[in-house]
Design a protein around this nucleic acid. Structure first.
Lengths: 197, 197
DNA sequence: TATTTTAATTGAACAGTGATCAATATCATG
DNA sequence: CATGATATTGATCACTGTTCAATTAAAATA
């Protein structure tokens, strides 16, 4: 076959990413297959490679989709909220990770080969999520410490990530931790307390 | 061929784990191959499956070896130290993860299938590492709060893990964090401060 | 409209993987 | 020596990511 009128290049790309994300969420990173995605949308494996160039770039696009949804979810949970916004953001973080287990985990299961560089638009997506946290932390910080917000946000993001990861991968269950979210919130409080004294 | 006099079953298992760990450290989880391990020790792929039953069980054994070395490394760094033991433990945590990148990362790249259960000896190894942290945190806590040590240890383990993970996977570099270890130590201090007031 | 050019799509082919298991080789024992 | 038990093999299977000459269809041109 040749050119098809039913999909522009851009639409085809979007179609693959949408179906790819769906399958990633369903079967997880380890069992994900580019061939299955092609089959599901009625194209051949070759087309996937024409559009994305490699398996890694396909995964990157799918993970980018996950980041988009994550950011949208985060903003939806914050919209219109007046109090406890940071807490709401962390709640949403956990909810998203638990609810989108496979897609969220794929974000970390995938590692770009040493030589290749991360696409700019992927960096932007990660930064955008971080910016939300920076903003919320800035508003919880006393004026004199506002400049510390970016550094603190990075560190608390790592803190929450660690708790969330251990909740998902079974480490916390193994160690008898019943309430990972509460533990994470405690650590965030502890960090903020440093700047309130 | 049949029985070989040069290796008992136990020795063969140990040989596979040792070579497997070596290759895991060299090529990483994604490029790891059971066939390559078999080739390196002069056995066939079938023998690997006779000894371990499945790929997952082989990985579990190799990750178990990594946990053994991690615990030994941790204890070596604490041995004889009188002051700043918790700090030394966290230093060692980072050093090990950075120095054994591939092996350490494989600990988290691998996820046991939903149905299968984690072998008891693997649980024990994870617990043993945790116990070291519990012990060090207990000694930093005021007597009245000593009972909180296990819960706090779990949470700080997650905190340090998050920082270490972001340091290794490039997230911190992307966000401009220059000193992940220092950030982790700050968060640990913040948590301990809660129990000192 | 007929022809040529351009671009999209295919899928067989390749090298690699985890997994299986009948056949084989070796050892220990009677 | 013969027999039974056990360890080891490697061809075979179904799958994977990847490539790319061949094919098809649309668009541009004559």
């Amino acid at each position: 076959m040749g050119r098809r009128s039913d999909h522009s290049r851009e639409e085809l790309r979007a179609l693959i990413v949408a179906e790819g994300h769906r399958q990633m969420a369903e079967v997880g990173f380890a069992k994900f297959s580019a061939r299955e995605v092609a089959k599901a949308i009625g194209y051949s494996i070759g087309t996937i490679y024409n559009v994305f160039g490699s398996y890694d770039q396909l995964i990157l696009a799918i993970n980018g989709e996950t980041l988009d949804r994550w950011l949208a979810d985060l903003e939806a949970h914050l919209e219109g909220r007046e109090q406890d916004r940071l807490r709401a953001a962390i709640d949403a973080y956990f909810d998203f990770a638990l609810g989108q287990r496979n897609a969220w985990t794929a974000l970390y299961d995938f590692r770009l080969p040493e030589n290749e560089i991360m696409p700019e638009d992927y960096r932007i997506k990660v930064t955008a999520i971080t910016e939300v946290v920076v903003r919320e932390i800035r508003s919880e910080l006393p004026p004199k410490h506002v400049a510390q917000a970016p550094a603190l946000a990075r560190s608390l993001l790592a803190t929450v990530h660690g708790h969330c990861y251990f909740a998902l991968n079974g480490t916390f269950a193994l160690l008898g931790e019943q309430n990972p979210l509460a533990a994470a919130l405690d650590r965030v409080d502890d960090a903020l307390a440093r700047f309130r004294s």
